[in-house]
Structures are given as C-alpha cells and as structure tokens.
Design a protein around this nucleic acid. Sequence first.
DNA 1: AGTCCTCATAAAATCGATTTTTTTATCGAT
DNA 2: ATCGATAAAAAAATCGATTTTATGAGGACT
Lengths: 219, 219
Amino acid sequence: MTLPDSASATASSQVFDALKKDLIRGKFKAGEKLAISTLKSHYRVGLSPLREALNRLSAYGLLEQVNQRGFRVPAMRLEELNDIANLRSQLECMALTQAFQNGDAEWESLLVAAHHRLRRADEMPEQIEEWEQAHLRFHRALLAACGSTWLLRFIEQLHDQFDRYRRMAPPNPTVRGELDAQHGTLVEHALNRDIAAGRALLDDHIRLSHDVAKGCCQP
Amino acid sequence: MTLPDSASATASSQVFDALKKDLIRGKFKAGEKLAISTLKSHYRVGLSPLREALNRLSAYGLLEQVNQRGFRVPAMRLEELNDIANLRSQLECMALTQAFQNGDAEWESLLVAAHHRLRRADEMPEQIEEWEQAHLRFHRALLAACGSTWLLRFIEQLHDQFDRYRRMAPPNPTVRGELDAQHGTLVEHALNRDIAAGRALLDDHIRLSHDVAKGCCQP
DNA sequence: AGTCCTCATAAAATCGATTTTTTTATCGAT
DNA sequence: ATCGATAAAAAAATCGATTTTATGAGGACT
C-alpha cells in the first residue's frame, strides 16, 4: 500500500529539490565542478535521475553545463549580483502594483498569515532553514495576486539567484532588524492598497538586502 | 580525426535543439502527451539523452512534466498569450531604453546587419525557417546592448513562448507588411537614440503581433 | 626549455535491460 | 447498468554496463 502522497516524488524530482536547496544554501563552492559520482553516492540516487536533475537545474540557471565537460556551479560576480538585484527590484515593483490592484480578501488573509509565520520564525534565530522558507513564502504571498504567471515565475527565479548571493554573505544583525521591520510595513501598505508607498518600500527593501549581499563578493 | 566543431554537440543538446524548434514551430498538438518511444525513433536517439532534453525543456517552460506520467505539450490559452504579450512588451521596452543608452558603434552595425538579413529574408516568403531565424536575430540584436544578462534571458524565453502562439495563428499578409516596415523604423530610432519613439513603436509592434497571434486561440 | 605527440586514466555520455507505476481491459457483485 | 476490484498491458523511471570523449603524464623532437 502506497501513501497517497501529494505528488509521488520521483528520484529525479527529489534530487532536484535537494540539489537546488544545497546550491542556494551555498553548500558548493562557487565555480566548483560537480563530480557526478560523488553526488551519486551523496544523494543516494542512480545516474539517470541525477543527470536529469542536473539538466533541469542548468536550464533554471543554478548550474552551468558545458557540453562534453559536465556541470559547474556558477561563479559569484558582483556585476551579476547587481544585475539580479536591479531586475528583481523592477519586476517585483511591477508585480506589487498589480497585486495591490487585483488582490482580494483571500490574498490579504494569506499575506497576513505568511507574515505571522515569518515573525514567529524571526524569534528563533537558530532555525535558519525555517526562517528562509517563511521569508520566501512571505515574498511570494505579497505578489501572488499580481495576475501574471510568467512574471511570478521570473521573480521566483531571480529570488533564488539573489538568495544564493545573500546567503553567502556574512550576516548583519543591524540591517537584519531593519529588514524584518520592513516586512510588517509592507503588509500595512498592502492592506491600505498604497501602491506608491509599497513600491518605494519594496525598492528600499531589495536595495538594503542588496547591500548585505554584496558582502559575499568583496571580503 | 574529429572535426573541430564549434561546440561538439552531444546527443542531448542536439535533440534539445530539434525538439525546441519543433515545439515552437507547432509540430505537436497543444495539450498532446508525448510518446517517448515515438520520439526516440523519430529523433534517432536513446532514452537517456532524450529524457535529459525533455527535462531541460520543461524547466524552460516549453513542456509540462507531471511526475509519474510523462511530458505534455502545454495547452494554448488566450489568457496566457495575453500574459506573455503584456510582459514581453514591458520587458522589451525596458531593455530597449537601456540598449539605446548603452549601445555603441559595434551594436549599431550588428543591428544594421541583422536588419539587412531580415529584409533579404522578407523577399523569399517560401523560406519560412530562414525568415524566422533572421527575425529572432533582429530582435535580439535590437536589445543586445541593454547590459542585463538576466533581462535578455527572460525576453528570449518570452519570445519563444510568444512565437509558439504566433506561428500557430493563420498568417495575415496585410499586417505582416506593416510589421516588416516597423523593423526598419525601429532601426532608425535606434540610430537616433530616440528612446520615446523606440518604446512606442516596439510596444505597437508587439501589440500588432499579439493581435495576429490571437488568431490561434479562437478560430 | 618548450612544443607536440601518444598513451593511460578519468570522466561524461549513451545504451539496453529491469523495475516501478500508471493505464486499460475484464469480470463479478450490487 | 454501474460501480469496484483485479489482472494484463503499456508507459515511465531507474539501474548497471558500455562507449565515447576529455584530461594529464610521459617522452621524442626541435
């Protein structure tokens, strides 16, 4: 008897998820070449599902593939971080505008709920992964009502890219407190449908995270 | 002795390219489920490279993958076409602004060259694939100098999505002539660095293509 | 010394077969 | 007749082995 899993995970998708998480977490060195046989034993999967996951990850932009010489973790370049942060700011402000216009009561309550979970996670600084997940979900919830599937897709992709840099950088408790406070204010602006204030604050928020993330490129 | 190929293509990347082309061309029915064994014999490749290509294509958004039940060609929905066209317009106008600001002489000459090739292709209406390639390259060249790798990446992805709809729609010779003319005017605006005119025209251009492409959803 | 070749090794890519899961077909019970 | 269970067939996913290609060490030649 098999469990009625939400979506019975194949080995491919499991190792995809695990690898994605580890790549964003910074478990691998930037620029490192991945040794397939090592990954195989580490993630306990066969060659085929592993290669399928690696192929998906390079199409997603978390790996680089060169044709006859395997897979490589992308380098961390300040120039690219700037590109990611700038674009992220533009796209998220675009989405915020639409979300504030289209969002209904259901959106509001999901956003408030996501924010509540994030504040709970703020209180337990030792559980990093829980906070990271709550944080990602909060930002998703903020823009979820924007109405554009493709915009959300690109924003998610940029967010993952951005996090790869941010999580590599040394933490800054002062700034961290400020960032946390901004989340609450963002919710207020959302409930007030104050687009101008929301955009300005989200832009600040990303700029501030950007400053933190820069710490990973020039030590 | 092996040929010093530009980048020795693996079976995976070859079938990826071929499948991508066929998907955009509309060789498969929308919503169709892909029969792996059929593809295998059609593209003359083994299972592993084929599956790797399919995985890449679903990460790219040209296929949908459901975990234990294979790969499916995405349906064509008017709503999605609208989303793609809107976002494409926004992102391309963004890129155009930056390209007009940053573009140097090299950019100008590559753009003029790409336009020249496109006009040549216009003259031979029977060679569709050649025109399609020239057209894609022209639009790439127009925005190439924008300076943002990630923006270009997303635009390329949206362009592929858009083309899947456009190429399914019945051709409209009248509009087609107008669209062709717009390409020339876009080059003029680029050389004049007239950002406002360029954005307005590019927006029109996409809107007009959008109208044509709509023909595929409601026959 | 430096460059170019050759061979040995390691890694990537591919194949064919096997295992697992889904889909379809069949049959019996209500 | 419809529903549900079961068995057979088909398809997807995975494995292990093989083939192909890149990498690196050694040696001959200029």
